[in-house]
Amino acid sequence: MDSKRFAVWPLTPERWGDLEDLFGPQGPSYGCWCNHFRMPQRLRMPLLGAGARQLFEERVRRGPPPGVLAYADDEAVGWLQVGPRAHVPEWNNPRRASTPLPDAPAEDERNWAASCFFVRKGFRGKGVTGALLAGAVAFARESGARLVEAAAMDNRDKRSPEGLYVGPESVFRRAGFVEVARQKPGRPLLRLML
Score class of each variant (00 low, 15 high):
Met1Ile: 13
Ser3Ile: 06
Ser3Asp: 13
Leu11Phe: 13
Leu11Cys: 10
Pro13Met: 14
Trp16Thr: 14
Leu19Lys: 08
Asp21Cys: 04
Ser29Phe: 15
Gly31Thr: 15
Asn35Ile: 01
Phe37Gln: 11
Arg42Ser: 10
Arg44Trp: 07
Arg44Val: 00
Arg44Lys: 14
Met45Val: 08
Pro46Glu: 11
Ala50Tyr: 02
Ala50Met: 11
Ala52Gly: 03
Gln54Phe: 01
Glu58Thr: 07
Arg59Gln: 15
Gly63Ile: 02
Pro64Asp: 06
Pro65Ala: 15
Gly67Cys: 04
Ala70Lys: 03
Val77Glu: 01
Gly78Ile: 03
Gly78Ala: 04
Val82Ala: 12
Val82Glu: 03
Arg85Asn: 02
Ala86Leu: 10
His87Gly: 03
Glu90His: 05
Asn93Gly: 01
Asp103Leu: 09
Ala106Ile: 09
Asp108Gly: 04
Asp108Asn: 13
Glu109Thr: 13
Trp112Glu: 05
Trp112Ser: 07
Cys116Lys: 07
Cys116Arg: 05
Phe117His: 15
Val119Ile: 15
Arg120Ser: 14
Gly122Pro: 04
Gly125Thr: 09
Gly125Ile: 09
Gly130Arg: 12
Ala131Trp: 03
Val137Arg: 05
Ala138Asp: 13
Phe139His: 13
Ser143Arg: 11
Arg146Pro: 00
Leu147Gly: 02
Met153Pro: 00
Glu162Ser: 07
Leu164Ser: 09
Val171Thr: 14
Phe172His: 10
Ala175Glu: 09
Val178Trp: 00
Val178Ile: 10
Val178Glu: 07
Val180Ala: 09
Lys184Glu: 11
Lys184Ala: 11
Gly186Ser: 11
Arg187Val: 08
